[in-house]
C-alpha cells in the first residue's frame, strides 16, 4: 500500500510554524516514515504543475499555515483544497488570522505610506512605492498584489481541522498527526486542542476566587505580575477566560498573561466580545464615572482583545465611512 500523501504550504507566515515542526526533533522522523510529503516549499521543490497533476482527493492531508492576503495565496490554497481529503489550518494565522491580521485595523495605503514614504530612515524624494508591475528598461518585473484585508484560511476555503497556537506546541502537532494517520478524528470543523478554557487548566486558577473585582487594569510596562497570583485578580489583562486551553499554559509559566493565541473557547463566536463580557463582573464600580475610568485603564481594546483573532472576528476589520469614499 502506498503511503498517505501530505502537503505543507505557507501563506503569509513568519516561519515560526515551520520551526515548530523542526522542534518535533526526532519525532519528525516517524512522520517522514509514515507519510509521503508531496509539497513543502521551504524544503522541497515541487512545482505548481505537480500539484495540479494530482487527482482530486489524492493528497490525504494538507497543513496550511499563515494568513491569506494575496491572490497567489488564494490560488494555492484553492488548489490544495481540491486535491486534498483534509485541510488543516495550522497555527493561529491560518486558524484566526493571527498577529499579521492586526493589519486589518489599518489599510494597505497606510502601510505603504508609513513604510516607504514617512519612515524615519527612508530617503524617497520621488515617493516611489512598490508596484505590481514595474518596467526597468525593457524588463518587466512583477510583484503580487497585497490585499487590504487579511483573511484566515476558512474565509477562503473549507477547512476540516484547526491546529491552534502561535506557534502550535510540538506535542499537539504530534498528536494531530497521529490522529490523522490513525483516522481517529473528531467531527469535521473541530479545533484540535482542549475543550476547556485556559483558566480551567491554569495553575493559577486556585488563586482566582469565584468572584473578585478590580478597580482598573495595570500595565506590564510599569508593574510586574505576582509570580503566583491569577493575572486577572492581580489586575493584568489575561485572555484566559476567553481562550481555549491546551497550550500547556506556556505564557503563564513564563509569568506573563495569556494573549489568546489558542483562539476562542468552544462555542464562542467572538473571542474579544467574550472577554469583554467577562469584564462586567470584574470591575468594581457602580457609577458611570467608575465605569469610564475602568475602560480608560484598558489601552487599545481592539489590539488586546483580538490580538490573534481580528480577521476571524465578527467585525473582521476596521472600516469607517471616510475610508470607503
Amino acid at each position: 500500500m502506498s503511503k498517505p500523501k501530505a502537503a505543507f504550504y505557507w501563506c503569509a507566515s513568519c516561519g515560526g510554524c515551520e520551526e515548530a515542526v523542526v522542534d518535533l526533533a526526532e519525532a519528525i522522523l516517524d512522520v517522514v516514515q509514515a507519510v509521503e510529503i508531496v509539497l513543502w516549499p521551504v524544503a522541497l521543490d515541487f512545482k505548481l504543475e505537480d500539484v495540479q497533476a494530482f487527482r482530486p482527493g489524492e493528497i490525504t492531508v494538507s497543513f496550511i499555515n499563515g494568513s491569506v492576503r494575496s491572490s497567489e495565496h488564494e490560488m494555492w490554497v484553492k488548489l490544495l483544497r481540491e486535491k486534498s481529503q483534509l485541510i488543516v489550518a495550522f497555527g493561529a494565522c491560518a486558524h484566526l488570522g493571527g498577529i499579521p491580521g492586526l493589519a486589518n485595523c489599518t489599510s494597505r495605503d497606510q502601510i505603504f505610506q508609513n513604510k516607504y514614504v514617512r519612515s524615519a530612515t527612508v530617503v524617497n524624494p520621488k515617493n516611489v512605492l512598490p508596484q505590481t508591475q514595474t518596467w526597468v528598461d525593457q524588463y518587466n518585473l512583477e510583484l503580487p498584489e497585497m490585499w487590504n484585508t487579511v483573511c484566515c484560511l476558512d474565509q477562503v476555503i473549507d477547512v476540516d481541522y484547526y491546529l491552534p497556537g502561535c506557534a502550535p506546541p510540538p506535542d499537539s502537532i504530534a498528536k494531530a498527526v497521529q490522529a490523522i494517520l490513525s483516522g481517529n478524528l473528531p467531527p469535521k470543523g473541530s479545533v484540535l486542542a482542549s475543550e476547556k478554557s485556559l483558566c480551567e487548566t491554569c495553575p493559577r486558577n486556585e488563586t482566582k476566587p469565584e468572584t473578585f473585582t478590580i478597580d482598573s487594569f495595570r500595565r506590564l510596562a510599569t508593574d510586574t505580575p505576582d509570580p503566583e497570583k491569577c493575572f486577572l485578580v492581580d489586575g493584568f489583562v489575561c485572555m484566559g477566560p476567553a481562550t481555549r486551553g491546551g497550550c500547556g499554559e506556556r505564557c503563564i509559566r513564563g509569568n506573563m498573561p495569556c494573549r489568546g493565541c489558542f483562539g476562542p473557547t468552544p462555542d464562542t463566536l467572538d473571542q474579544g466580545a467574550k472577554f469583554l463580557s467577562s469584564l462586567g463582573s470584574v470591575s468594581r464600580g457602580k457609577t458611570v464615572e467608575e465605569a469610564r475610568s475602568f475602560a480608560d485603564s484598558l489601552a487599545d481594546p481592539l489590539g488586546t482583545l483580538y490580538r490573534f483573532s481580528l480577521p476571524s472576528s465578527l467585525l473582521q476589520r476596521r472600516s469607517c465611512n471616510k475610508e470607503v469614499s
Binding site: S281, A295, L298, R318, C320
Partner: peptide
Amino acid sequence: SEGNYRTQRRYPLLTDLLDQFGV
C-alpha cells in the same frame, strides 16, 4: 441586583472597542 451594573461597566469598553473598529 448586579446585572445592570455589569452592563454599565461593559458599555464604555464596548463603545471604545467599536470606535476602534470604525463604528
